[in-house]
Simulated assay, not measured.
Amino acid sequence: MSGDVNPPAGKAMRVLLSDVAAARHGARIRDAVPDVDLVPVAPDGALPDAAGIEVAFVTRDLFVGGTRHRLNPRFVRFTGLLQAAPALRWVQTFSAGTDMAVYQAMLARGLVLTNSTGASAPAVAQTAVTGLLALARQFPRIAAAQARQAWEPLYAEPEPREVEGQAALILGTGPIGQEIGRLCRAFGLRTLGIRRDAAAGPPPGFDAVAGFAALPDLLPGTDWLILACPLTETTRDLIDADLLARLPPGRHLINVSRGGVVVEADLLAALRSGHLAGAFLDVFGMEPLPPENPFWGLPNVIVSPHSAAASDGLPERVAAIFCDNLRRFRHGEPLRNLARPVA
């Protein structure tokens, strides 16, 4: 799929979007393409006529309150309308990842699907490195002492290790991985990236890169294993007991990618045994994380409710990507950030 599109000239494009997005971004969208007919979808009431809708803009407000396993009724209502839009050809989504079943079904239907790769990179990278620093500075230990109203300075063993000079192995060298690498280097860490095409060399933020086949041999020299890759057939269940065992004792894992990249039972065992000193986990195999899940109670784990991308600046960055693509769509040019089927 090339992303080349050739919409009919001389008629207004019908663009389906939420009522929130229409109010927030409508002026910006019309500045980008004046001859556009915005079709807002409210959370309830009658649905608009789907006839002639060529473009859909899926924004985060439709998804808030749900998860990939428990979809928000607004999201279901909106994407259900897309299924009834016979003229629909292109869907732009707010997320970077498009591995959810609803998006994969769109690709299987033959729709052009574009994501918002890069829009969430600043917030996700800041979250990942905040998690790294919180674990490095033993904040879980401080929080546990605070809950007991206990004054326990960190000068007692084990004292925090200096992060300067430590090695961060980052799976995924896209915009998020690059920003994580840049921030890690600012704190004096060495950064090595894992990417599909190692021959392409290191992108910004990395001292060096290697391919996935080299991962087992690189783990013994790793202090921080940071997951920032998409969920694909290559990465699904990639981090298992064997790879975790190759990390030296006392190392850490950061996951801001997808829960399915890790075999959670193996990760749980490594954390319980103490082989892994700790983990910052923003994503899980099942979300919301069930109350009975043992990750909640581990003192060496920081559980984050899939919020790494949360930022009040994210909607505007997503809208900028959509508006650029909308101009491209109008002029029959290739679109940015084409999504692919999870092979």
Score class of each variant (00 low, 15 high):
M1A: 15
F280L: 03
T191D: 04
D282Y: 06
R185E: 13
L81M: 15
R251K: 14
R30W: 12
P7T: 03
L247K: 11
R272P: 03
V55A: 03
R195A: 09
V20M: 01
A21E: 03
L298P: 03
S257A: 15
V283T: 14
T232C: 10
G211E: 06
L215E: 02
V318Y: 13
A309F: 14
E233Q: 15
L218Y: 02
A320V: 10
T79Y: 05
M286A: 04
A168S: 13
A119W: 05
P40D: 07
V20N: 06
R330L: 01
G177C: 07
E157R: 11
D282M: 03
P203Q: 06
A269P: 00
L219Y: 07
L281C: 09
V76H: 04
A87T: 09
F139L: 15
N115G: 14
L192N: 00
F94I: 05
T234C: 11
P34C: 10
E164W: 12
A87L: 00
A108G: 14
A279V: 01
V163F: 10
G250Q: 02
L111A: 11
R14G: 02
T222K: 05
T222I: 07
G250F: 04
G274M: 02
D282W: 03
G131R: 13
P230V: 14
T127D: 12
E157T: 13
D31C: 13
D37L: 14
I226C: 08
F284I: 03
P86W: 10
P288M: 01
A308Y: 09
H331F: 00
F187Y: 14
P204F: 01
L243F: 12
L289G: 12
T79R: 06
L154R: 09
Y155T: 15
E54M: 05
R330C: 02
A343S: 13
A167D: 08
T79V: 14
G80P: 10
V20W: 14
R141Q: 13
R272E: 14
R60N: 11
H306L: 09
L338S: 04
D237R: 15
G26E: 11
P334Q: 03
E264N: 07
P158S: 03
V76S: 11
L183V: 06
A228Q: 10
H69W: 14
P315W: 07
A121P: 03
S95V: 00
V20T: 12
P160K: 07
P40C: 12
D31R: 15
P294L: 08
L135R: 05
A339Q: 04
G65K: 02
P299L: 08
L326E: 03
L71C: 00
E179F: 01
R196G: 04
V39M: 10
P220S: 05
